[in-house]
């Protein structure tokens, strides 16, 4: 899926983050919905806010768009304070809310025209822009039908069209594929990937779909109970959590009795677990550089190896490890 030229956004200086939050807080009575979060988002970056329901993701999006004032701390979006310049910021942001929030009694065209006007698209361009969006999101043939007759996937595409109609350089997506079937979810994910990687759009994605976040996000902030537990790219987070690497080795023949001892004597090997039933072993090593030496050493001792896998951590591993540590 390629985007029409209207999506091509101006790149900003990489020196200036588009979003900068410093100790941002929002309390509702005793409850700390957002608790002193600090992060920045660079231009063109896809940034994920991950966490379970109630982690503070949606509240953070609301604070950054200036529709909710913070209880403490500060934020800057495009260099502007959302509390004071909410309207200016919202002119440059598009938000896909958790529920599509469409006017179901109106048609797709009426929905887009309405939000196009509120986003201050000039009257002379409005119709053309609406047509382009309807065509791009494959809704042209149903443009005059009431939204209540649409499938969930169509509604989500229309909600995305609404968020993008004014070509915002910054897009907030709150649970973008929530409730969608796999095919519709795939379409939405492809679109997000296109927006960021082809067109340089900055995207902040609030989600609890870890697979999606791993695929799309350059960096993530993992949130729980209003706090950021960890922040960084997948590699950075994995390295912070597990500085040592696990490598899994599968043998073609039965394991030699002394294989554990042979490996433990090798420099850089911390521990070894042998699984005789599966003719396999797992070794915890200081880093990946040690692995070729281990393989060479085992072969020299007559081992017949059919597979060597340095263990990759998924965002899911990281997420659950962090949540468990928090509890």
């Amino acid at each position: 899926m390629t985007l029409p030229p209207m999506f091509h956004v101006k790149q900003r200086s990489p020196m200036n983050p588009i979003i900068q939050a410093n100790n941002l807080q929002r309390h509702f009575g005793e409850q700390k919905a957002v608790d002193k979060v600090t992060f920045s988002v660079a231009p063109g970056e896809v940034f994920g806010l991950l966490g379970p329901n109630g982690a503070g993701k949606t509240t953070t999006v609301r604070l950054l768009n200036g529709i909710l004032p913070p209880s403490g701390g500060s934020a800057q979006v495009f260099g502007l304070d959302p509390t004071l310049h909410g309207e200016k910021i919202r002119r440059q942001t598009g938000v896909l809310t958790e529920t599509p929030a469409l006017y179901e009694r109106l048609s797709a065209r009426e929905n887009l025209e309405f939000f196009g006007i509120l986003q201050e698209i000039p009257e002379s361009n409005l119709r053309q822009r609406v047509d382009e969006m309807l065509e791009f999101f494959a809704l042209s043939s149903r443009a005059k039908d009431k939204v209540e007759t649409y499938s969930k996937g169509m509604k989500q595409r229309l909600a995305l069209a609404r968020a993008l109609i004014h070509e915002p350089p910054l897009l907030f997506l709150d649970e973008p594929t929530s409730g969608l079937d796999p095919e519709a979810a795939q379409q939405v994910n492809d679109l997000i990937a296109d927006l960021s990687h082809t067109d340089g759009q900055t995207v902040v994605m609030a989600t609890h779909n870890l697979f999606e976040a791993q695929r799309l996000c350059d960096r993530v902030a993992i949130m729980s109970k209003g706090k950021i537990l960890a922040l960084g790219s997948l590699e950075e987070l994995a390295r912070d959590l597990w500085p040592l690497t696990w490598v899994d080795i599968k043998f073609h023949t039965r394991l030699a009795k002394d294989v554990t001892g042979i490996l433990k004597a090798q420099r850089g090997v911390i521990e070894v677990w042998a699984d005789a039933k599966r003719d396999a072993l797992s070794a915890r090593v200081e880093n990946e550089d040690v692995i070729p030496d281990i393989v060479r050493h085992l072969v020299e001792h007559g081992a017949s190896i059919i597979r060597v896998n340095p263990r990759d951590y998924t965002l899911e591993d990281i997420y659950f490890a962090l949540q468990a540590r928090e509890e």
């Binding site: 768009n65 529709i67 309207e87 200016k88 919202r90 002119r91 942001t93 938000v95 809310t97 529920t99 929030a101 469409l102 006017y103 179901e104 939000f115 509120l118 986003q119 201050e120 909600a159 609404r162």
Partner: peptide, 14 residues
Amino acid sequence: ERKTLEALLYTPAT
């Protein structure tokens, strides 16, 4: 009630 208010609040309208 129809959960449409949030999208309206995210527009630049004062």
